[in-house]
Design a binder for these strands. Structure first.
Lengths: 210, 210
DNA sequence: CCATTATATGAAGGATCATTCAGTTTGAGG
DNA sequence: CCTCAAACTGAATGATCCTTCATATAATGG
């Protein structure tokens, strides 16, 4: 995976001492805040550095250029998200399909909601070409995990597992994204999540009765 | 609606002669192509002008600044999309709910697919603050149209119309968007569209049986 | 406590780019 | 054919911003 990332996007060096890790975290955090506050267009290296309480030069010790910073931010986030999905999928092997879907929706939704600021910031972080590679890598991992899970459903076997899986994943992820784009939060979002679950379950029973 | 747009984003002047309209179209088209080809970061006024075969100065007679160009592009597109949805919703008043959903999905999907380059270009066109106002305006129009339609379903009445409507709209729009983001096209996309329809219908019958 | 390496600084360079405006060309109406 | 406004031109301006580098400070291990 790392080998497929465009060479120039890799981090310049890894933090060794503790303070360096702190600096990196501060830079990431500052990036998120500025992205949220002012949008991608206003995101300048100087501003990020200033907000993070470091100097520009420091940032350039860890990132060869600005794009690499945003890339790293997405990378970090998407890998953590993929991890969570993989874990929850593995935990639900052999369970009823309805439980699987509930777990998947809950996990994904919570991951996005827990720090909705980060979610929103990243949705804004500009869809430059390089990010799409990250998104695709995430999609592949998620697909593999959910497919493997659904294949073990204790109460259902799917005539076309790939199709059902692709449908569910696309619908769930897309719905969550759209919910954020429309700024649906709080109780409204909760209701939507419940309805989405109902919908997916209705789809599953429909499929097993066919 | 126009009165709610940030003052400075309005077009500078309307085309009067025929050639001016041609110029404007060329500028929009060039913007789309460059957005698609090189991403929003590489989109410069000079490049757009050059690609459109006009000079920078010409562009600035119609748009007070670059942001206004992107804003206008989104505005154009979203208003046309809202229009299409309103029309199809009106045409399906009084029909069975399943037909309504099919029409809605088909219309939305086709609108996005017909010129998928434009769709993708706009998805990339940077989520700067001002665009979100456009998106919200679109959402309000779409919600109103679909709610009014669903309320007249010949075979179903909904206990919580607003909730069902919000769910359907969010799921459908989100799924389509995600399908594009994952580059699902051709036969795969077709299959997904069919499955999405099944899913929404299953949701509807589930609801009417409750 | 010294040498070495890691980490941090921020002014300056250099490039890009949005925007303007003085002037030219084109079309429309009379 | 003439006049006026509309439409178009593109070099110049000024601002912004990414990136570098020479230098300084802090930690580490011996």
């Amino acid at each position: 995976m790392a080998s497929s990332t465009p060479r120039s996007l890799n981090a310049r060096k890894q933090p060794i001492q503790g303070r360096a890790a702190v600096t990196l975290d501060a830079v990431f955090e500052a990036t998120i805040q500025l992205l949220l506050r002012d949008g991608p267009h206003q995101l300048t290296t100087t501003r990020v550095a200033h907000r993070a309480g470091v100097s520009v030069g420091t940032m350039y010790q860890y990132f060869p250029h600005k794009q690499a910073l945003i890339y790293a931010l997405n990378d970090r986030y998407l890998k953590a998200l993929a991890e969570k999905i993989e874990v929850v999928c593995r935990e639900h092997h052999g369970k009823p399909a309805a439980d699987m879907i509930e777990a998947l929706i809950d996990t994904y939704w919570r991951a996005k909601t827990e720090r909705s600021d980060v979610t929103r910031a990243l949705y804004r972080s500009v869809a430059d070409m390089d990010n799409s590679a990250l998104i695709e890598a995430f999609a592949i991992r998620a697909d593999a995990a959910t497919t493997a899970m659904l294949a073990t459903a204790s109460d259902t076997t799917f005539a076309d597992l790939a199709l059902v899986n692709r449908t569910l994943v696309t619908v769930i992820f897309g719905t969550v994204r759209n919910a954020f784009e429309r700024n649906l939060t709080g109780a409204v979002a909760e209701d939507l999540r419940r309805e989405l679950l109902k919908m997916c379950r209705a789809y599953l029973t429909h499929h097993s009765h066919n």
